[in-house]
Design a protein around this nucleic acid. Sequence first.
DNA 1: CCGTGCTAAGTTTTT
DNA 2: CTTAGCACGG
Length: 784
Amino acid sequence: MDVELAAGVEKTDRTEGARRAEPFSPEALARELNPAQVEAVLHPPGPLLVIAGAGSGKTRVITYRLARLVATGADPRRLLAVTFTNKAAGELRERVDQLLYGRMGIGSRGLWVGTFHATAARILRQWGTAVGLRKDFVIYDDDDQKRLLGRVLTDLKVPERMFPVRQVLSAIDRAKNQGLSADSFSSSDYFDDVVGKAYRLYEERLAAANATDFGGLLLTTLKLVAGSTPAALEIAQRFDHVLVDEFQDTNSVQYRLVRLLSRQTGSITVVGDEDQSIYRWRGADIRNILDFERDHPGARVVKLEQNYRSTGHILRAANAIIEKNSERRPKRLFTEAGDGDPIVLFEGETERDEAEFVASRIDAALPEGRAPRDFAVFYRTNAQSRVLEDALRARDLPYAVVGGTRFFDRAEIKNLLGYMRAVANPDDGLALQRIINVPARGIGSSTVDKIGELIFERKISAWQALELVGQDEELLATGPRKKVAAFVELMRRLRAEGATLGPASLAEKIFEESGYRDALAAEATLEAEGRTENLLEFVAQMREYEREAEEPSLHGFLERVALASDVDGYDPEKGAISLMTVHTAKGLEFPVVFLTGLEERIFPHARSVDDDSAVEEERRLCYVAVTRARTQLHLSRVRRRRLSGQELPGIPSRFLRDLPAESVESIVMARPAEYGNYGSSEGRGPWGGRWSRDEPQASRLPPGRSAAPRSTAAARTPGEIVVEYDAEETSSPMGLQVGVKLRHASFGVGDVRGWQGSGADLKVTLRFPGTGVKTILARFLSKP
DNA sequence: CCGTGCTAAGTTTTT
DNA sequence: CTTAGCACGG
């Protein structure tokens, strides 16, 4: 057997290679891996396709393969591994390191591990000048993209009605994912004609802003590597081995990129599972898997079909669901584990019941040795998380929503980031526009518009325009001109003083000198306090970054923020129940999983039900969700669901029909006897938990309060309380409807136990379900 | 120019 | 139901 030596021949001689590879010899590997896994690990450099079913030890194979390559002499700095998320990249790096240190006493320093986008960014920072990109370019996220394109469409005088930003942007993105640059974009109809024009101007503006977007990172890198510049040749020879995880979710540009990066040695390993392809809408192309075999004649294909994660019932359900797809090659996972617990299917009346079911189940399992981190609750769309949060919160169960509206998306964070971006890159027009009047400094929209026109007409950068306007007396009235000049001065000062500072210190300086801190302090509202807290938290994150990054820098931090994925925020150490969309759950596993909302038009989603191949993707999504569970899987559906205001009838999802009956145990909630009569209906559900529905009930006003018009302002900060008045009730001395809303929970009036104080501030005593009575400082957002 | 209040609009999944 | 965008009055 010479196979295990092959990887080492390049850098080491035979005996040296054999000695060092000892811990990774076929015999040693056979003790830890199954035969298919061993084959994948030992395959000599050269094209290798690993079809890895869910839970089949894929990560193990990748880790061992990388470690073994290094152990047999490969230079870790010449090894590239591409993962789907930053989190996966970090874990992979760590495991390879552990494996190597533990067995060989050597490390894997310099190993290139990252997402496609992070890898592309890294390549462009180093070699991007060859394609006209400056080293200090910034990355625009989708929000920036939208705003920039909106501006472009306005300048092109394109009617918004016929060409919504959203649609034009997705057309541009689609083109980019397929490798079409603005120049090569050809139009076949009127819509494409407009898209093409917009695309070109959009790219022009991006370049002027010294920025690129997600698709641009990949496309520009491809262009760079495919070229014949010295840089292109250098990069093409840069890596001896390339490995791609989640290959089924790569798009055309990504595939072409890895082909080019690996063409020198031909050592390319791709790992994927067509049944887990869930990003077709983002340009992913399952055909890449088929093309791989075509493009690499003689490629070895290894199938991993033994599942080590889930129990028999769960795996049978997963197989039953995925087998209905026609666009797939046959594959069947098996396990040697026992049947385990049957799958629990809950059928309830409303989404509240569903949430209550989830919460009560978890609550009941905790005393029996389960920790909160063992549980995950999945849903198809982010909007479904709210009720679930309410139910968990009501029971004081620790939970964390992974992804969704991100911390970085909050206005105050974006403002601070806007400053930092403008400091890092003076040409970032969007960033400048965002912060030019934050805090309010008297530069209104008309001034901003004038500057915008100037940029357009004279084809100058945003910063040049600002400088110009601040000096030239012709362009603006004295008042605004002085204000702009002061802003220009502020930015100059920040840039000069911030040049040597780390991100955290720079952020603090910005917070201070921009007047943002003072402005928030002056507001003196709970909301402003919350914003300040968020900003301080953000600065703390920067400090954390400075501690752990290899070479912390402002650009590095901004890049990390731009390329952060939703799941990167998942930290099992938090010890919380995890809530996330099914997409975010990909790649994770949990002992106990709840998959909610199994109704037609929810899962599968309404946007997919009319299209067979879209339904197949939903089915794969369902398969992904089900295969996340290790020992317990709960599925749930309800008979009516309120979604964005209106109530929809809940029809059982088609996926439920595919479940093997013998693996499922149903819990069906009886229809309440008094259908539609809420009020104080409270009782015991069939699963033993408490369930209740409370609609606001009539109650008396605190003494001394008079009637007021109805107000429904929403609370914006935790701890803030909104008290609602209902004008219709004012004539009745029996009282006003009073409901209390916290940020995440509503309280019926029955829960309001007392009041203290008068005026805008008062203390309200509330009964929290399950946790007793608490007194909270309340504030009327609208004046009584 | 700023803040408030209203209306209208949208609502899958995300690097 | 929520949010974003807009018109109006200060």
